[in-house]
Amino acid sequence: MNIRALKQEEPIPIELLLLADPSETLVREYVQRGQCYIAEKDRYIIGVFVLLPTRPGTVELVNIAVNESEHGKGLGKKLVLYATKMARDEGYKTIEVGTGNSSIGQLALYQKCGFRITSVDRDFFTRHYTENIHENGIRCRDMIRLSQDL
C-alpha cells in the first residue's frame, strides 16, 4: 500500500469521501481548503483522508474513508496513524477529528489511536445536513470532537 497526496490535476475520489460524509457540497468545500491523501494498492484507491489546517498549530482530520471491500483489515487505523504522523512531522501541535454520536466504530478507533474526547457540538448534524443520518440504529445528531497533542 502506498499513501500519497492527491495531485491537483487528479479528480477527487468523491464516491469514497461520501462514505464518510454524505454532503457532497461540504466534502468539495473542505477538500478545496485542505489536502486530500489517498491510499493505493495496485494503482487502485482503497482509502482516503483529508487534513485541514484550522488554527495556528492545529490541523483537523476532516474525512477518512476506506473502500468497503477493504473493511476489517486495519486500513482505517493505518490511515489515522499515518495522518497523525504527518501532522507531527509538519510541525502541528494538535490534531483534531470530529465524528457523529452514532459512529460507534469510529469513536473506538480514534481513541485507540490516542485521541481523547474534548467536546460535543450538540445538534451539529441536524443544523448542517438536510437529511437525517442513521448509523447503528441511532440517529446521528451530535458531533463528538476529539483531539490529540502531538
Rank of each mutant, 00 (worst) to 15 (best):
M1D: 07
R4G: 05
L6H: 07
K7H: 11
E9P: 00
P11R: 14
E15D: 15
E15A: 11
E15I: 00
E15S: 14
L16E: 02
L16N: 11
L18V: 09
D21L: 03
S23Q: 08
E24P: 02
T25D: 14
V27I: 13
R28S: 06
E29T: 05
E29S: 13
Y30S: 03
R33A: 12
G34E: 01
G34W: 06
Q35S: 12
Q35G: 06
C36G: 05
Y37K: 04
Y37F: 15
Y37C: 10
Y37W: 15
A39V: 01
A39N: 08
A39L: 11
D42W: 00
D42C: 00
R43K: 13
R43A: 07
R43T: 14
G47N: 03
G47H: 09
V48D: 15
F49W: 04
V50S: 06
L51I: 01
L52D: 08
P53N: 03
T54L: 05
P56E: 13
V59F: 07
E60R: 01
E60P: 00
E60L: 00
L61Y: 12
N63P: 05
N63V: 11
A65N: 01
A65Q: 08
A65K: 05
V66I: 13
N67A: 15
E68K: 12
E70A: 09
G72M: 05
G72L: 12
K73W: 03
K73G: 06
G74T: 02
G76V: 02
K77H: 10
V80W: 02
L81M: 13
L81H: 04
L81C: 11
K85C: 05
K85D: 11
A87Y: 01
D89T: 05
Y92H: 11
K93G: 12
T94C: 12
I95F: 05
E96S: 08
V97K: 03
V97I: 15
G98T: 03
T99N: 08
N101D: 06
S102F: 06
S102G: 13
G105P: 02
G105A: 10
G105I: 07
L107N: 14
A108E: 08
Y110D: 04
Y110S: 01
Q111D: 05
K112L: 02
C113M: 06
C113H: 10
C113F: 10
F115Q: 04
F115L: 07
F115M: 03
I117E: 14
I117R: 15
I117L: 15
T118H: 04
S119T: 04
D123W: 08
D123Q: 12
F124V: 08
F124N: 07
F125K: 06
F125M: 05
T126K: 07
R127E: 03
R127D: 14
H128T: 09
T130Y: 04
T130G: 07
E131M: 01
E131P: 04
N136C: 00
G137N: 10
G137V: 06
I138V: 11
R139A: 12
D142A: 10
Q148T: 00
D149P: 00
D149S: 01
D149M: 09
L150S: 02
